[in-house]
């Protein structure tokens, strides 16, 4: 009996070890799998051409990813520019100013927002943001815009990353010792001066980590962006131009990818690119956040 129990424990522990190793190695498997599939494309063209060429003619075997990379950068950039100041200000409000009653109402809404699926953000973008840009914003700046633009993609993405940034920044701000703020206040600083010169500075690593995480989230977001940003394979030159981010490229063309040679390889290369960039960004921000946590604990 005793021996049976011990053997059972041993076997189960080995089994768990295998499962753990397997599930963690998904990261590696994804990387290897996607790279393996990109090899045919990489045999045909060099990294340099793939990343800098703007010629996207799958039927002729020309795969230049530059417009898609630029599309991704435009959309992500706009999203961060909109979301970061708003999120910082509201995080400061939530942690430093809001009476506890209001805070108790606010935080659940931020949580609810994070639960809404991407496709719903996309529908909202189509129904609300697109007409807003087409009829009310774009006419002030350009002659004509359908509304489907990198700006629309950026706005929708910005709203999607609100909860992520707000929750991390609030968490970081809450770890700043009250006494540090009191030190500044007791020297006669106003609350805002204390936020600007003390809290902000103290929270900078956390804010950077949150931003990096938000960027990587924005890079990979597919469906919501695809639905609103126009999907035109040219490099955008203004916020009202349509763009075609990498994830949208993959999602839109999976249907044909097996019927044109090398096309599947090109799309898997796009997925590989996304994967590598996002992996790097995630590791960076997670390491910053874990260090921060450990520093505060110790």
């Amino acid at each position: 009996m005793q021996r049976f129990r011990l053997i059972k424990d041993k076997i189960l522990s080995k089994l768990m070890l295998v499962l753990t190793v397997l599930s963690v190695s998904i990261v590696l498997l994804i990387g290897i799998g996607l790279y393996y599939k990109s090899v045919p494309l990489l045999h045909q063209s060099s990294w340099g051409t793939l990343l800098t060429s703007s010629e996207w003619k799958p039927l002729k075997g020309l795969f230049g990813f530059f417009p898609f990379i630029m599309g991704t950068l435009w959309v992500t950039g706009i999203a961060i520019i909109i979301a970061l100041p708003l999120c910082l200000l509201s995080s400061f409000y939530i942690t430093e100013y809001a009476p506890s009653r209001i805070r108790k109402i606010l935080v659940p809404f931020v949580n609810l927002l994070s639960g809404i699926p991407p496709v719903i953000f996309g529908v909202w973008g189509v129904l609300f943001i697109i007409p807003l840009i087409q009829n009310h914003i774009a006419p002030h700046f350009v002659e004509f815009s359908t509304g489907y633009s990198v700006l629309a993609g950026g706005i929708v993405l910005a709203v999607m990353i609100f909860p992520l940034v707000v929750s991390i920044v609030c968490e970081v701000l809450n770890t700043i010792p009250k006494e540090l703020k009191e030190a500044s206040l007791s020297l006669g600083a106003t609350k805002w001066e204390t936020i600007k010169k003390v809290s902000f500075r103290k929270a900078t690593p956390g804010i950077i980590a949150a931003t990096v995480l938000a960027i990587s989230r924005a890079f990979g977001e597919t469906i919501a962006v695809l639905m609103v940003c126009g999907n035109n394979a040219v490099v955008p030159h203004s916020v009202f131009d349509p763009g075609y981010p990498l994830p949208a490229l993959i999602a839109n063309n999976y249907g044909e990818m097996l019927s044109i040679p090398i096309y599947d390889s090109a799309l898997m290369f796009a997925a590989f690119l996304l994967f590598i960039i996002i992996l790097l960004f995630n590791i960076i921000s997670r390491v910053i956040l874990t260090r921060l946590e450990r520093k505060l604990a110790g």
Binding site: P177, E179, E182, A183, S184, L185, S186, L187, G188, V198
Partner: peptide
Amino acid sequence: RKKMGLLSQRPYPLP
């Protein structure tokens, strides 16, 4: 607050 200097339990130098 400017009229009063506060020295707390542990030193909290500003960052």
